[in-house]
């Protein structure tokens, strides 16, 4: 059960996509991709998860137990990578560490068949909601973040800026990156309506220095800045 692998879309050939990845079975879409979704959510929350509501949609809802999708998601939420043998025991490990997890079946209209909705609370009380799909071959796509539609994979360096929609924010962010000679590979801006909640997702060729991220956080219209390093595996 797996892989809608489409190297036709890829710019580069990588033979380790054919022999690899090294992963915990049984399914690259239902297990490896699920672990990646969990791990990405954990990195976005940027602190340990103390409570997780996991809603499975579509094919995930049908086979999540048999494929270990539940264990993979929770393992990812605990910081485990796709090849971490502890994924198998993650539900027990989560219980032992006091993490509160509940699973549910959800129906998200129009969503990819392997979609999961995560509602997370971190140890400091910070909250995050995310909808993501495992699109095959262990590849994932994040489709919704804190209620806003987005579209990124976490495969590249990704800078996520949550802001109030206001003139000048985009220029400030791209200016800061230009100052560091960092190339922007892809950039998307999402907002609910003019002047409201907005989000900017930038895929970058390089990683910005911490002080640049800090300075962005202090800008008036910017509410939150998260940087996801390029996924190593």
């Amino acid at each position: 059960m797996k892989e809608t692998f489409t190297p036709k879309d890829d710019m580069t050939m990588d033979l380790f996509d054919l022999i690899g990845p090294v992963m915990i079975g049984p399914s690259s879409s239902h297990t490896a991709g699920a672990a990646r979704i969990g791990l990405t959510a954990r990195l976005l929350l940027n602190e340990d998860v103390c409570k997780a509501e996991v809603g499975f949609h579509g094919s995930f809802a049908k086979t999540y137990r048999g494929h270990g999708t539940d264990r993979a998601i929770v393992g990812g939420l605990m910081g485990m990578a796709v090849d971490d043998p502890r994924l198998r025991d993650s539900l027990t490990l989560a219980r032992e560490s006091g993490m509160d997890v509940c699973f549910d079946v959800v129906n998200i209209r129009g969503a990819h068949p392997n979609t999961v909705r995560l509602t997370l609370t971190g140890v400091s009380g910070k909250e995050l909601t995310m909808e993501a799909a495992s699109v095959g071959g262990g590849n994932i796509e994040i489709h919704k973040l804190n209620g806003l539609n987005v579209d990124f994979t976490g495969k590249e360096h990704t800078l996520i800026i949550h802001q109030t929609d206001a003139p000048g924010v985009i220029a400030a962010v791209t200016g800061a990156l230009a100052g560091q000679s960092i190339n922007i590979a892809n950039m998307q801006v999402y907002r609910r309506k003019a002047g409201a909640d907005a989000m900017m997702v930038l895929e970058l060729d390089g990683a910005p220095e911490d002080y640049v991220l800090e300075s962005l956080k202090h800008m008036k219209a910017i509410r939150n800045v998260t940087f996801l390093k390029r996924r190593p595996c």
Binding site: K2, G20, V22, M23, G25, P26
Partner: peptide, 20 residues
């Protein structure tokens, strides 16, 4: 090993990981 959530190398996929 794959079916039992062990660690494998996809070749080219997890489902067909035993042949090569």
């Amino acid at each position: 090993c794959n079916a039992c959530m062990g660690k494998i190398v996809a070749a080219p996929t997890a489902g067909a990981c035993g042949i090569l």
